[in-house]
Amino acid sequence: MSGPDHPATPDDPGAVELPDLADALEVVEGFLLGEQPSLTRVEVADRAGVPLEVAEQLWRLLGFPNQTDDAVAFTEADVQALVLTHDLMKLGILGPDSQAALVRTWGRSYARLAEWQTNLLTEVAVEGPDPQQRLTELAASVLPRVEKLQSYIWRRHLASATNRVLAVDGSGSAATRQAVCFVDIVGFTSRSKTLAEGELVDWLEHFEDEATRLVVDLGGRIIKMIGDEVLFVADEATAAAEIALRMTERGADDQDRFPQVRAGMAHGAVVSRLGDVYGPVVNIAARLTSVARPGTVLVDRGAYEVLSGRSGEDDPTQDDAADAAYSFRRMRRTPVKGYTRLQPWVLRRR
């Protein structure tokens, strides 16, 4: 055991050379920030020409730890970041209404990404005989490539999102008609109790990987993964229906690792903001998922009418067209939170 009273020795397998680790972290920090910290927050705000209270608000929204006025924790990069932020505010890009939400979204997204990337690099580093040296080498060789790749991915998604928004009506309106679908793992809580931590992570990662592949390949877009649930949207209702049915079919196959799932799908006007979706259509899709039986896909009136080409008031005993891709079974109206008489249909392949 090493510590103040037990110095680390070569024979101690659990020894941690703290000075070496500190040196390694200092090198990595300097590489990531461009230089070693040499400025206080007061000096950063003064050099950027931004009021200190504005700078503090931005740092807080980004999720950075609070610093005292005399703490030397900043670099010239922080000055440039404040200047750029102030420029965006003057240009009207970061207005009073959008500033907090947008900056907070940046902070949360990059914090999660950084945590995952750091864990990955650390796992690779500890496999070698000299983790500190290996971590320093990885920071110098891997991170510049990761940074360029992140910029490329961001630009590609930005181009795609711009095309989607402007293609609607040329106005850039945030509300569009889309299909929204939630897919939820059946029996997640009970299954998770039987798995070791590593097995649980592997199981969830397999679900996320396969769900993402299906959504993207069939023309949908992942909005977010929420633990044991995936939320996606599609411009075409048929694409969303196909994705949901593929997932439930895979979940019903005992030979497939894909877990058993259930799905709820709704179609209508959806508001998109900061990468998320909002509105009654989203709420209805979530409520349908909560009442769907294992292995089934429930759709709302809007999705039913688009997929079937019928009115929701048509005779439910009328046979579906022989050449229709899907069949529907109207269920009883269901009371759910926020909707006392929600009308669902069970969606199946013909």
Rank of each mutant, 00 (worst) to 15 (best):
L274R: 12
D97F: 06
D253K: 02
P51G: 06
R333A: 14
W106C: 15
P13T: 09
D235R: 03
M89T: 04
A321C: 03
D46C: 06
E197A: 09
R41K: 03
L200V: 01
V186E: 14
G95T: 14
V165R: 01
L88W: 12
G187N: 01
D300N: 09
D228Q: 02
V299Q: 13
A179G: 04
R213H: 10
W59P: 04
T296C: 07
L82D: 04
A45D: 00
K148M: 05
V270I: 03
T176S: 14
D202T: 09
L25I: 12
R104Y: 11
V282H: 11
T162K: 11
D169T: 02
D209G: 05
P335C: 08
L218N: 15
P344V: 09
L58M: 05
R112Q: 15
R108M: 15
L25H: 02
Q57E: 15
V183S: 04
E147P: 04
G34N: 08
I185Q: 06
V79T: 07
S173K: 08
A114E: 02
P65A: 15
Q255E: 15
G187A: 01
S141V: 13
A244S: 13
E26S: 11
V183C: 08
A77F: 03
L231Q: 11
V277R: 02
P259D: 03
G227R: 06
G219E: 00
R155W: 11
A167N: 03
A234D: 02
M89S: 01
A252M: 11
E29L: 08
L121H: 02
D78C: 04
L91G: 00
Q80M: 05
I243L: 10
D235Q: 00
A263F: 06
F74R: 00
R349I: 08
N119R: 09
Q36I: 12
V142I: 09
K224F: 01
R349A: 14
L138D: 02
V282C: 09
L82R: 07
E208F: 13
M225S: 14
L347T: 01
R287G: 05
A252Y: 06
R134E: 05
A111M: 02
E236G: 07
D253P: 01
I226V: 07
S173E: 04
G63S: 08
A239V: 01
L113K: 00
A324Y: 06
E76V: 13
Q133N: 13
F232Y: 14
Q57D: 15
R47I: 13
G295F: 13
F328G: 10
T162L: 13
R341Y: 04
Q99S: 10
G264R: 02
L214Y: 14
S141H: 13
G279L: 15
Q255Y: 08
A237K: 00
H157N: 14
L52E: 01
R104W: 12
Q260I: 06
F64Q: 08
T176C: 08
A266P: 02
V54R: 13
L214K: 06
V142T: 10
R60N: 07
M331V: 08
G92H: 12
M1I: 09
A286F: 11
A114L: 10
L195E: 10
R330H: 14
L204I: 10
A269N: 00
A48D: 05
G63I: 10
A303G: 14
A81T: 12
Y152K: 12
F328I: 04
V299D: 09
F31D: 04
E147M: 05
G14Q: 15
